[in-house]
Design a protein around this nucleic acid. Structure first.
Length: 185
DNA sequence: CCCTGATTCGC
DNA sequence: GCGAATCAGG
């Protein structure tokens, strides 16, 4: 599907309204990725949006040249049934986007006041004794999150099934990565 | 990890 | 012109 006038128009509108590229992509249709949106935005020279001051100093050489695009996923021959109807009725596809994006803000904060007990602030995973692993019992698929004092006899590893993306299980992976990486050393 | 926009370059 | 892959940053 190409960029028809109305699609471009909608793109401009949404972009100016401050929607993110992925949100716009979702709004435009299934076959549109956020990359497509961003690419078009740039071609239209629509950058800068509602930004009075250039907060983002465009100073990135980007010397990429080595990686070549391996291969295309084949032509997504989306033979859309566009039987000459350029202006189809599009009231609003009921944006199926429950995910909060953009500011990563937690707009919905469930109430917790019904809890009679104060949840333990330092909540940890309880690992049953028979699930606990010693150093020598670790392998590629066990969570390597250490628990306890390494010098103590009680020291053990989480041992849950670890993610493919890291050395920890889901619980500890989040704990390890959430917002604290990419720090200079 | 999630996400954002920016850039390059084969198509 | 298009957009996937990639980069850089939060």
């Amino acid at each position: 599907m190409g960029w028809t006038d109305e699609r471009v128009e909608l793109l401009k509108k949404l972009w100016m309204e401050g929607l993110s590229a992925s949100q716009i992509a979702g709004e435009l249709g299934e076959g549109v990725t956020r990359n497509a949106v961003i690419g078009k935005v740039h071609r239209l020279k629509l950058s800068a949006r509602a930004k009075p001051a250039n907060t983002t100093p465009r100073a990135r050489p980007a010397p990429r040249q080595a990686p070549r695009r391996p291969a295309g996923p084949g032509t997504v021959s989306a033979s859309s049934s566009m039987g000459g109807m350029a202006s189809a009725a599009k009231p609003r596809p009921t944006m199926p986007r429950p995910q909060v994006m953009g500011a990563t803000a937690l707009a919905i904060t469930p109430e917790f006041e019904t809890s009679p007990y104060v949840a333990p602030a330092t909540q940890e995973l309880f690992i049953p004794e028979d699930k606990r692993l010693s150093l020598l019992q670790l392998n590629e698929h066990t969570c390597k999150w250490p628990i306890g004092d390494p010098l103590s006899k009680d020291f053990y590893f989480c041992g849950q099934h670890s993610l493919e993306t890291g050395p920890y299980c889901e619980f500890h992976s989040r704990r390890a990565y959430h917002q604290l990486d990419k720090k200079k050393r």
